[in-house]
Amino acid sequence: MKKCLRLRKRKNLYLRLVGSYIFFIFLVGLIFVGTLLELMHITDHFYDEVDYTSLTMEQLGAMQAQIDRIIAISFAMMVLSFLLLAVIFSIVMGRRIRREEREVEAARQKMLADISHDLKTPITVIQGYSKAIVDGMVSEEHMDKYLNTIYQKSNRLADLINEFYQYSRLEHPEFQLTMEPGDLSEYVREYVAGKYEELEVAGYELDVDIPEQPIYMPFDHVELCRVFENIITNTIRHNAPPTTIFVGMEFLREKHQVRIRLGDDGEGIPEEIREHIFEPFVVGDESRNSKHGTGLGLSVAKRVVTAHGGKIRLLPTTETSWSTMYEIILPMNRGNL
């Protein structure tokens, strides 16, 4: 995962370096062309002012020597300008590279710290409870409770590892979607139907608005399901029953796009993290400490949607009556990736 993070950061840095070098070459070209034009202007003006018929050979030679000196001085000034520009460019780019490297290292350290934090809690519980059983400190009366806790924490540990794996897989440069044609309306409808019983048993309510008309388009049937699952799982994790979960879909005919919205009328998302909600490991303190959210689910969702050529955003509260509403825009003419 950290290797993929470094690759992505370095790729962005290299693109900025290439752009800076192109700009540098452009400036050099402007100076060169400007110097040539100025020399042509000076020499033309000089020759226009002179009456050659009245000049001796010595005077013509002196005049030519003066023109040569002007050209030499102009060329030297042009070279000095190039060198000065190169020095300034090297200093600026050196500072930028060092700053980028510090940012990459800081991001790597934060990612490692977050991963260690998320893995440490279930591992600590498993180790403590299993040691208590091995040491014979647990009575038969409490044995089932201890074993059940170990089982739950091991499942949580497996979920965490899976989330980290999915995130690192999407970050890999060779990752590609498996695009297959299908009816997106029916696909979303079947997904909601499959979640209905689970949500109903948990005490949540569903509000669904999916068009009856078929909407045929290519999409990755596995990864798009992961997007819906991550968003709804995030909703359940942060909101208690009887929160209503909304799933809506609309065909934007003029734009040849499909708009999917998933939201809820729960507690909402704190303002301090709304702007960064799709960045990896962005979660509220309560989530990380008590509900064990990794903050990777929405980051994975964004990467999948982006790979489809689409966009995902968290709607401002001024644009919706729901506490939280995610909007996904997918193009219908996206070919195989």
Rank of each mutant, 00 (worst) to 15 (best):
L314H: 06
R334S: 12
D51K: 06
L112K: 08
A76T: 15
F24R: 05
L330M: 07
S116L: 02
A76N: 10
A113Q: 10
Y216E: 15
I42K: 14
P242L: 10
E229V: 05
I22H: 04
S74K: 11
E327H: 06
V28Y: 01
H221N: 13
R95H: 15
N155S: 10
A72E: 13
I269W: 03
R10M: 15
S299L: 02
A132Y: 02
F278P: 01
V79P: 11
T178F: 11
T324A: 02
V208Q: 03
V222Y: 10
D44M: 14
A107H: 03
L184A: 00
Y216M: 14
L55K: 09
Q213R: 13
A113S: 07
R102G: 02
L199V: 02
E250G: 11
F246Y: 12
G309T: 11
L184S: 06
L119C: 00
V208K: 03
Q213K: 15
F32R: 08
L160E: 10
E223W: 10
F175K: 02
S20W: 10
D68P: 04
I91G: 03
E180R: 15
G310Y: 04
R334Y: 12
P181Q: 00
V104N: 13
R261S: 09
Y191V: 07
V208A: 01
T121A: 14
E186T: 10
L224I: 09
V92Y: 10
E171S: 10
F75H: 05
G19I: 12
Q166V: 13
A202R: 03
V104E: 14
R261P: 05
G128A: 00
L337F: 12
H276I: 15
S81K: 02
I88C: 11
L83H: 03
K9R: 15
V304P: 04
G61M: 14
K311G: 04
L330E: 11
F82Y: 07
Q59T: 12
T35C: 07
L39G: 05
V33K: 09
Y146C: 09
K120M: 11
Q152S: 08
K3P: 04
G19T: 08
I231T: 09
R261W: 02
K302P: 01
N333K: 13
V134A: 14
R108W: 11
G128F: 03
T178R: 15
L27V: 11
V87T: 03
H238Q: 02
A86G: 02
V87W: 04
L315D: 03
V33P: 07
E103V: 09
A158K: 03
M111R: 13
G335E: 09
E286H: 11
V87L: 15
R99H: 14
G263W: 05
